[in-house]
Design a protein around this nucleic acid. Sequence first.
DNA 1: CGGTATCCTTAACGATACTG
DNA 2: CAGTATCGTTAAGGATACCG
Lengths: 134, 134
Amino acid sequence: MSQGHTDVPVEARNPEVCTVYDVLNRVSGKWSIGILVEATHGPVRFTELERNVRGISRRMLTLTLRNLERDGLLVRTVYPTVPPRVEYVATDMARELYRSLVELTGWAERHRAAIAAAREAYDRANDRGEPERA
Amino acid sequence: MSQGHTDVPVEARNPEVCTVYDVLNRVSGKWSIGILVEATHGPVRFTELERNVRGISRRMLTLTLRNLERDGLLVRTVYPTVPPRVEYVATDMARELYRSLVELTGWAERHRAAIAAAREAYDRANDRGEPERA
DNA sequence: CGGTATCCTTAACGATACTG
DNA sequence: CAGTATCGTTAAGGATACCG
């Protein structure tokens, strides 16, 4: 096999892997990005998020908000009124991340057609009844 | 600035959300990036990947490879020798993606300390017995 | 209004025996 | 060597009742 190659694991050889994996973990999850985008546009309330991030459940909204806050991507502000008012807003760090995500968007848009074509080709080539897929 | 906001859902207002979510889905998953990195460095064999991407199981290696291939990020080449030789290599599209991921790495590295601090602060502030977490 | 607590379903992942 | 098949486990997410 490839004789000359070192035995050191990929994570050691490519520290970027861990790092990028790390940030991906932070932002992966079905809802993080939607919330991040909303909170990047300006302070937003819990109920607003519940409405604007379509399809999210209360539970996941809370969980995702807590995680983003914990990572320093969101700031949560409570106004002690009745009824309570809570606002979430993206931090500078998160806005910077947002810009990198826009980069990714660019990639996705540039290659959207190619990816679709690749999938079709793959599915056609391997066609065993594989029914429709979203 | 809450009241004046439109009623159109976040996906409609921010098409980037869907797109970036899409690409994230493609690259999320515990192993995609590790494999992608390896295959970006040059053609790599199944067994090499199994060794170099530490901790991956055979099953996940196969599944992830198939998905990446299906999306047109990897090309699989079979050399009909005995024993068989199969090589995977990243496509140009994948290499471009890789560069965007490196961008993300930059973000992660720049803010690594801030994130760690945010977490500590958060955990300290909310400390109810929450035991150690990786 | 802004959450928690609880229960349930699904999808991702891990281990490993077997095979052309 | 490069997989597939089958099993079991864990984690992510969904629904929703309840609460300060």
